[in-house]
Amino acid sequence: MIELLAQAPPPPSFWNRPPYSPELYVMVIGTIILGLALFFGLTYAPTRLKRPIVMTFTFLSGLFYVLLWLVPTPLKPKEPGELPLNPVDAAGIWFSDALPRVADVAQILSAFLLGLGIFSLLTIHIRKINRKQTDWGFSIVLLVSMVLMLGFGYADWIMKEFRDPLGLLQDSSNWTFVNQMSDLLFDGILQQMDAAMFSLIAFYILSAAYRAFRVRSVESTVLMASALILMLSLMGGVAYAWGQGIDALVIGTGNEFLNNLKITEVANWLRTNMQAPAIRAIEFGVGLGALAMGIRIWLGLERGGVSA
């Protein structure tokens, strides 16, 4: 719908109102009040209804995608102003129109839940500071860095988004202290720590390979062998020298089949004919597992987890 036709605003309908208009505010606030009423209404729900209520919400959300899948996708109208052929076509059009809206819902709800995560973080560290538990000083460091990043981050965004119609702040020579601080905290420290932590993996790979790649059993031996072949093929110098050797052999013997023994060829063959199918087999299994789990969650059959 509007996402595809970005320039043309959608026609007015029951569902929308002009931007920032008083009617829109009324509708929005009304909806929130209605939602809150539902919220408090639900606190009086009897115990035996609790599970069915949750299940209904889950089922309806899943139903959208299942129906979207089962109703034939409508063909795009050739020109504006076409009427749907029949109810199925109309439903198809409705589903594909509603898709971009529904697709946002999960992300928006998860975003609202983020507050809970931050609340967990704050409780733990404020409690540490209050009780002067071990390392409470570091908890203060955490809170201070959080507040700094939050403050400068928002100030920077507001300046760039709303106070800078000419786009001057795109150029770093026009930056104020706030922009610099935000950049320093994010780009100078946070991103660098990301990269540093990421690169630690290289050290761990070395020690893990050292411990694990032993000729103990068939399994660990094939694991090691295929890893070694791949690594050798990635060393350009080794691959080059190896290739030169094979070339000499081919010229010497006249047997072109030997070309297949070049390390890059061997590595590629290993990847396409052994790695790819092995992984595909795992993926099939995982896909079926996810499908089965999806059905159980959708129909409320899953115990223990969410709908119990």
Partner: peptide
């Protein structure tokens, strides 16, 4: 071939979208 909406006003709006949304209201 879909039929044309007789009430359709061409320029600013997009009829197919509108119909879809109304079908939504009805459905």
């Amino acid at each position: 071939k879909r039929e044309k909406d007789p009430n359709f006003v061409p320029p600013a709006t997009n009829g197919a979208e509108g119909n879809g949304t109304e079908a939504a209201g009805g459905g």
